[in-house]
Each structure stands twice: as C-alpha cells, then as structure tokens.
Simulated assay, not measured.
Amino acid sequence: MQKWMGNARLICKQFIIPFTIFQGVRTILLPTTFDVLLLTLFIGIGLAIYFDWI
C-alpha cells in the first residue's frame, strides 16, 4: 500500500464512527432516501476499514 493510501485509511478510521453516529441520529429524526443511502455507505466503509477489507 502506498504511503498516502495508508494515511487516508488512518484518517477515515478516525472519523468514520462519529460520522456514522451523527448520520444514524439524523436518519432517525428526519429520514430521507439520501440519508439512508449515506448511512449505509458509512456503515460499509466502517466495516471495510475495521475488518481490513480495504
């Protein structure tokens, strides 16, 4: 893995959980199609990072 990709992965790993929690609360309060898709994307990215799929 290139150095910049490793740095990007570490940055994403640091921010994905707060973004996912915020998006989950937002989706519960005001659900739109975009919010649900974005929450699904954040969950997928979070799983991929923490299980080393990427």
Rank of each mutant, 00 (worst) to 15 (best):
A48C: 13
R26I: 02
I54G: 03
G24C: 09
D35K: 11
L39G: 07
L47P: 01
F15D: 07
L47V: 15
W53E: 15
G46W: 04
T20K: 08
P31I: 12
L29V: 09
A8L: 12
L37E: 12
L10Y: 02
I49T: 14
G24I: 01
T20W: 03
I45D: 12
R26D: 15
L37V: 07
L10C: 05
I11F: 11
L41K: 14
T32S: 14
N7H: 00
L10N: 10
C12F: 01
P18T: 04
I43T: 15
W53T: 11
L41V: 10
Q14I: 01
D52F: 08
W4F: 05
T32F: 01
P31S: 10
L39C: 04
I54K: 03
D35H: 12
I28F: 13
I17P: 00
I28V: 13
I11P: 00
T27A: 09
P18W: 00
T33P: 02
I28G: 05
G44I: 07
I49Y: 01
R26F: 04
G6D: 12
T27R: 12
Q2L: 09
L30T: 10
Q14A: 09
I21R: 06
K3F: 05
G6W: 07
R26S: 15
L39N: 06
Q23W: 04
M1N: 03
F51E: 15
I45R: 08
I43D: 06
F19N: 08
F19L: 15
F34C: 09
L47M: 13
I16F: 04
M5D: 05
T32W: 00
I11W: 10
G46H: 08
K13D: 12
I17G: 00
L30M: 05
F34P: 12
I54F: 11
D52M: 01
T32I: 10
R9A: 09
K13P: 02
L10F: 07
I54V: 02
L47C: 13
I17M: 01
A48E: 14
I17Q: 07
T20D: 08
L47W: 13
F51T: 15
K13L: 04
G44S: 14
L10M: 06
V25C: 09
M1H: 04
A8N: 02
I49L: 14
I16W: 08
T40F: 11
L10W: 00
L39A: 03
T33L: 13
T32G: 09
I17C: 01
L38R: 15
F34R: 14
M5G: 05
D35Q: 11
F51W: 08
F19G: 02
C12W: 02
C12V: 03
T27E: 11
L39H: 04
T20F: 02
L38W: 15
Q23A: 15
